[in-house]
């Protein structure tokens, strides 16, 4: 059994696995209940499936130039898919398109509440200092007198 035959068989297996993962992404995008779940389905199995299919193509074509271009494709997917998913999730959360009843733990809401409390605390401190500036003023008034 030659090296090429082995590569072809491996490529076929990888192609099937990649196609199955892409199908899983399609099913997830159609079936999942809300935006975050759909985004998850459209992002993770999707990228792995594409990487498998591209690996299979590299195994079939077997040329260094093609390998380089396919690596570029994979690197771009790794760079751009998280950015797109992050943007979609962020604006979906901020425009209230996330179903809260499906969330087990909403850490972002907790952090936002904490941030609001912190801002209010700092503002109260500043207001107290402005309204009642005794320490410095009295001391500076005391010194000459």
């Amino acid at each position: 059994m030659s090296w090429e035959a082995v590569a072809d068989v491996v490529a076929a297996v990888l192609l099937l696995a990649g196609a199955v993962l892409t199908l899983a992404a399609g099913i997830g995008v159609l079936r999942f209940p809300d935006l975050l779940a759909r985004m998850h389905a459209g992002t993770k199995p999707q990228v792995l499936g594409l990487v498998l299919v591209l690996t299979a193509e590299a195994l079939r074509v077997r040329s260094p130039a093609v390998l380089g271009l396919l690596l570029v494709v994979v690197v771009f997917q790794f760079l751009t898919v998280p950015v797109a998913a992050h943007m979609v999730a962020r604006s979906g959360y901020r425009t209230g398109q996330v179903r809260r009843d499906l969330l087990i733990d909403d850490e972002l809401a907790r952090d936002q509440d904490n941030a609001v409390l912190e801002v209010e605390r700092v503002r109260d401190e500043n207001e107290r200092d402005e309204a009642d500036p005794p320490p410095k003023a009295r001391r500076s008034g005391d010194l000459p007198g």
Binding site: L16, L23, A25, I27
Partner: peptide
């Protein structure tokens, strides 16, 4: 052909 069919179904679902 099987892989192509799976991809086709995935595209249709999307």
């Amino acid at each position: 052909l099987l892989a192509a069919a799976l991809l086709l179904v995935a595209g249709l679902l999307a």
